[in-house]
Computed example of a mutant assay.
Amino acid sequence: MKELTNISPSELREHIRTGGFTGNTSGFAPGFVQCNLVILPSKWAADFLRFCQANPKPCPLIACSATPGDPGLATLGDIDIRRDIPSYRIFRDGVLAEERSDIVELWNDDLMTFALGCSFSFEEALIGAGLDVRNITEGVNVPMYRTNIPCESAGPFSGNMVVSMRPFSPANAIRAIQICSRFPAVHGAPVHIGDPAAIGIADINTPDYGDAVSILDGEIPLYWACGVTPQVALENAAPPLAITHTPGCMLVTDKRNSELAVF
């Protein structure tokens, strides 16, 4: 899929719609915002919105449905949320039931979509500063871990934060923190640095989602709040139906990363 790396977001979404692209989207369509996805029945939407507002680090809201049943997200491009993500997760009563390449058969007029910021967006700025983003260099999905960091609850939605990890030398870690602090809409600065056990990670080489990456001698792991966090909250809230992205398989939008930067 390397030949697709630099195509436009709309072209990449077309490949996804036709089944020509099914992998993780890290490093693809550089320069454009990628989003995590949560789709819920409308009666659950207000509480989930409050959960996002209470937890802006792991759940930075980029866009949501204008009305129930609308599969578009006009502010993000010509989106068909039923077909524009490489892999979807289907939760029933809080339990992961299956994964699908599209959700056309599951769609109904009561569903609401939430698009949340993703750390893949700030990876462009890190690479542009000459930093080695290890998951990109090694061609794998970023490692993600469940932690013991609690989120603020909202209605039935609660749970601990999920984080993504990228290792850097001490000097580059400082630079990475400075860069990511300019992107609060896509998780901003890390929430933890260093010892994984301090945030409840038993084995840094065995992520809960994504793939392990090399950590070189002298490097420090940096941990960012991750948009997979809502999947933990969905497990606890247990709505009858919830749909998310498969970790690493994001919604690639037409919004530019530069639009989210704060200087």
Rank of each mutant, 00 (worst) to 15 (best):
I39Y: 02
A171R: 00
I136W: 09
D132Q: 11
F183S: 04
P239S: 03
V252M: 01
L4I: 15
C35S: 04
H15K: 13
P247T: 12
T246G: 01
T113M: 00
T25P: 15
T244V: 10
L76R: 02
A115L: 00
A242W: 08
N172L: 07
G19M: 05
D110V: 09
R100H: 07
I177R: 13
R17S: 12
G159R: 02
F122L: 13
G194V: 08
R83V: 13
E152R: 14
T25H: 12
T246L: 11
A173D: 03
R175N: 06
G227P: 03
D109P: 08
L241E: 05
N141C: 15
I220P: 01
Y223S: 02
I127M: 15
Y223K: 04
L12Y: 06
A54K: 14
R82G: 03
F120L: 14
A74S: 12
L116Y: 01
I199K: 02
P230M: 01
C118M: 05
S101A: 11
P167I: 06
P56M: 12
F114Y: 02
F114L: 02
L251P: 02
Q178V: 00
P30W: 01
A238Q: 14
H192M: 05
P170S: 05
A212S: 15
I79V: 08
M144Y: 04
E259I: 00
P196H: 12
N257V: 14
L49S: 13
F114H: 04
Y209K: 00
P71A: 02
I85P: 05
G94E: 04
R92L: 09
T246Q: 15
S65H: 05
M165P: 00
I16R: 03
V262F: 05
P58H: 04
I220A: 06
E3N: 14
T147C: 04
G188W: 08
A212M: 08
A97G: 00
N148D: 14
Q231S: 07
L96P: 02
I7W: 00
Q231M: 08
A189N: 03
P9G: 09
M161K: 01
A238K: 15
I199T: 03
G227N: 03
R50Q: 11
V232N: 02
I39C: 03
N160D: 15
V38Y: 05
M250S: 07
S121M: 05
N236F: 07
G27A: 07
S8Q: 14
V133I: 08
V191Q: 03
L234T: 11
C151H: 07
I90C: 03
P41D: 08
P156L: 09
L96W: 01
N36V: 05
A125I: 10
K255V: 14
C151Q: 06
N6E: 13
D217I: 11
